[in-house]
Simulated scan of single mutants.
Amino acid sequence: MAELTAGTIANLEVSHKAPFGYFLTDGTHEVLLHENDVTGKLNDKDKITVFLYQDHQGRIAATMTIPTVRFNSFDWATATSLHKKYGVFLNIGVSKDLLLSKDDLPYEWIYWPQPGDRVYCSLKLDKKQRLFARLADETVISTLSLPAPEELRNKDVHATIYRLLDDGAHVLTEEGYLGFIHNAETSGTIRIGQSIECRVIAVKENGKLNLSMKPRSYEVIGGNSEKIVAYMNSRDGAMPYWDKSLPEEIKERFGISKGDFKKALGQLMKEGKLYQEDGWSYLKQEETPKSPDQG
């Protein structure tokens, strides 16, 4: 009889009850089914289907929970913890987390999945027959994908990063569309498994998307306008900055370029909320409506 191997599904017989679970047998070998891995009442000689994995001592153990992540069976797994020495541990639905080795991740750990991130993976064994996660490659991911429609241009999509490149990242949207985000269109440090909101800037002929994490220009202006108004409100509606202020002053105070500052001021003036005078900017005070008996 062949050895019982981690990562496989086996049909075993209940040998006997133990204080902490049951021992199962294939007629030659015995493995422990811990009580935490039991999903119903069992009796001696019952035949059950179990998933085999390695416990914390490296011994083969069994669970009645059959994960969808298996050899040659890919599915999403959620990162539970990150350990710089080993890699990232993933929850695949069984009592012991699965390790995604640092050897299969970028050199710098800041690009590794963080707890709560999701990766698409299956199982593999190393030379010592230890069970590890295997990240899906482009060929596997492409089997999940659909060609994107042209009308998706400029729409917002939700996506998961599954591969990092020198010039950007590959993603899969919730709808199953493949996309690429160039480094120039990213926001902050991105990582494998990260869930992101982005917008479609192009739909290519092959149905793949070019995406951006950066806001639209009017959203940038709106955000900067809110920042300026909040600052002015904290100063009774006035500030010693206007569209001729020095770029360094604008950068130091608001953290934005002079060009973006002028666009935001222009928007506020167009909306009738702000005016400039002698190097200062002022918020216009709303007039109090007159009551009917006032002349």
Rank of each mutant, 00 (worst) to 15 (best):
D243T: 15
I110D: 14
V69A: 01
I9M: 04
K263E: 13
E277S: 14
I48C: 11
E205Q: 14
T5R: 14
G266Q: 06
E185K: 07
S281W: 14
V38L: 06
R199F: 01
S217Q: 14
I141T: 07
N210S: 15
P147E: 10
T186I: 04
Y218H: 15
G193R: 05
A79F: 08
Y120R: 04
D126V: 02
V229C: 07
D44V: 15
L42R: 02
V69C: 01
G27P: 01
Y282H: 13
S101H: 12
H16Y: 13
R191C: 03
G279M: 06
L265I: 11
G40L: 12
V140A: 05
A264I: 06
Q267C: 08
T80W: 11
D293Q: 07
R235P: 00
L265V: 03
F23C: 09
A238L: 08
R134W: 13
P67D: 00
V157N: 01
N36G: 14
A77G: 06
K262W: 09
A184C: 10
L42Y: 07
R134A: 08
E197C: 10
N183T: 15
T65L: 10
L52R: 00
M239K: 05
F74T: 03
E252A: 15
V31P: 01
H158W: 09
H56G: 08
N183H: 14
E205V: 05
V171H: 01
P113V: 04
N11M: 11
Y282N: 05
H158G: 09
G58W: 07
I250Y: 01
R235F: 10
A133N: 03
T189S: 12
R191M: 01
R134P: 05
K263P: 00
E287Q: 14
S217C: 00
G188K: 00
K273D: 01
L100G: 03
K214N: 11
V38W: 04
L98C: 02
Q57L: 14
A136I: 04
V157R: 00
D75H: 13
P67Y: 05
P113S: 11
Y241K: 12
L131K: 00
M239C: 10
M64R: 07
L165V: 14
A136D: 05
E175R: 03
L98M: 02
P106T: 02
A62M: 05
L125W: 05
V119W: 07
A169M: 13
K155P: 04
P149I: 12
S212D: 03
H56F: 13
S122K: 06
T5I: 15
K270P: 01
K227T: 09
N210D: 15
S187R: 08
W280P: 02
L178I: 11
F71Y: 09
P147Q: 10
S187G: 09
I66F: 03
T78H: 11
L52F: 00
Q276W: 10
G255C: 06
D278H: 14
G93H: 11
L246H: 14
L135K: 12
L246M: 07
A202Y: 03
A62D: 06
V94N: 00
L33V: 11
M64N: 03
P292M: 09
L105M: 04
A136P: 14
I196A: 06
G266E: 07
L98D: 02
R235T: 07
H34M: 08
Y111A: 11
G259W: 10
H34C: 06
T25E: 04
G188R: 00
P106K: 02
G193D: 05
S81T: 15
K84R: 14
